[in-house]
Amino acid sequence: MIEQLLIGSALILGSVIIATVSWWALEAILIRLHGWSARPPHGPKLVVILSLALFWTLFMMTVSVWVWAVSLFWLDIFITLEASVYFALVAFTTLGFGDILLPQEWRLLGGLAAANGLLMFGLLTAILVEILRDTRARQRKFY
Results as ranks from 00 to 15, higher is better:
M1V: 13
I2Q: 12
L5N: 10
L6P: 04
S9W: 08
A10S: 15
A10F: 14
L11T: 00
I12C: 08
G14V: 03
S15M: 06
I18K: 04
A19E: 03
A19K: 00
W23G: 04
W24V: 13
L26P: 05
I29P: 06
I29H: 11
I29A: 13
L30H: 04
I31V: 14
L33K: 08
G35I: 06
S37Y: 09
S37A: 12
A38H: 06
A38G: 10
P41C: 04
G43P: 07
P44C: 04
K45I: 09
L46G: 13
V47S: 06
I49D: 01
S51Y: 08
S51M: 11
L52C: 09
A53Y: 07
L54M: 13
W56T: 05
T57H: 06
T57F: 04
T57R: 03
F59V: 09
M60D: 08
M60A: 10
T62L: 11
T62M: 10
T62N: 03
S64T: 09
W66L: 11
W68I: 03
S71L: 05
S71R: 05
S71W: 03
F73W: 03
W74Q: 08
W74K: 09
D76I: 08
F78S: 01
L81Y: 01
E82A: 15
A83Y: 05
S84T: 05
V85M: 06
V90Y: 00
A91E: 02
A91N: 03
F92G: 02
T93E: 00
T93D: 02
L95T: 15
G96D: 15
F97V: 12
L102H: 01
L102Y: 02
L112M: 10
N116C: 08
N116W: 01
N116R: 01
G117Y: 00
G117C: 03
L123N: 06
L124V: 09
L124H: 04
A126T: 12
I127F: 12
L128G: 10
L128R: 07
L132W: 14
D134R: 13
A137Y: 11
R140P: 10
R140N: 15
K141I: 15
F142I: 10
Y143L: 15
